[in-house]
């Protein structure tokens, strides 16, 4: 496929270039392209210029190829894995190397501060990039798992707006649930 260039305009009026194949990683952009509404530049009023390059970087990595990379993007779990009749060991090895590479890339890619995380989630949601949404949402979920409500507040900079009485009631419910019974 020839790589047609597509131009995206961020909320603060900056224009970015992306290959059509890469842009197709986004469900929203794909619909615009397929709908034939390509009129030069696609305006993205919900995505700012400091987050759009990050989004494009993800699309470039995942846009070009089909099926298999989407599965890897979902955390490496391919639920609908088909067992192909002409199973190729070489192919399997290459696939494994690719998965490892992608994992490493993802690790580096995901190294950013929280504000970027929120913006990326919003952008991924708005542009319907499932892999990116899964990746970012999973990171946010890991900031909650294993934490107490106080730690969750601290992680997300949330102030509790409960009255002391309400808070006490919450702690009671908490305790009921935290009471893990260890038998030996």
């Amino acid at each position: 496929m020839s790589s047609t260039k597509i131009f995206l305009k961020s909320s603060d009026d900056k224009t970015f270039e992306i290959d059509e194949t890469a842009a197709r990683a986004s469900e929203t952009l794909k619909n615009i392209i397929d709908g034939g509404c390509l009129d030069g530049v696609i305006p993205l009023p919900n995505v700012s210029s400091n987050i759009l390059p990050k989004v494009i970087e993800y699309c470039k990595k995942h846009g070009g190829d089909n099926g298999s990379s989407k599965k890897i993007a979902n955390g490496g779990v391919d639920k609908d894995k088909e067992i192909l009749p002409d199973y190729d060991e070489e192919e399997d090895k290459r696939e494994k190397v690719r998965v490892d590479e992608l994992k490493k890339w993802e690790e580096e890619y995901m190294d950013f501060d929280q504000q970027v995380l929120y913006d990326l989630m919003l952008a991924a949601n708005y542009l319907h990039i499932k892999g990116l949404l899964d990746l970012t949402v999973e990171k946010a979920a890991s900031m909650i798992r294993g934490r107490t409500p106080d730690q969750i507040r601290e992680n997300f900079n949330i102030n509790s707006d409960f009255t002391p009485e309400e808070e006490e009631e919450m702690i009671l419910i908490e305790d009921e649930w935290d009471d893990e019974w260890a038998f030996d």
Binding site: I144, R145, G146, R147, T148, P149, I152, R153, F156, I158, N159, S160, D161, F162, E167, M170, I171, I173, E174, W177
Partner: peptide, 10 residues
């Protein structure tokens, strides 16, 4: 942890 999130804020 869903229950814990409930007790984070209103």
């Amino acid at each position: 942890y869903v229950l814990r999130c409930r007790s984070v804020c209103k």
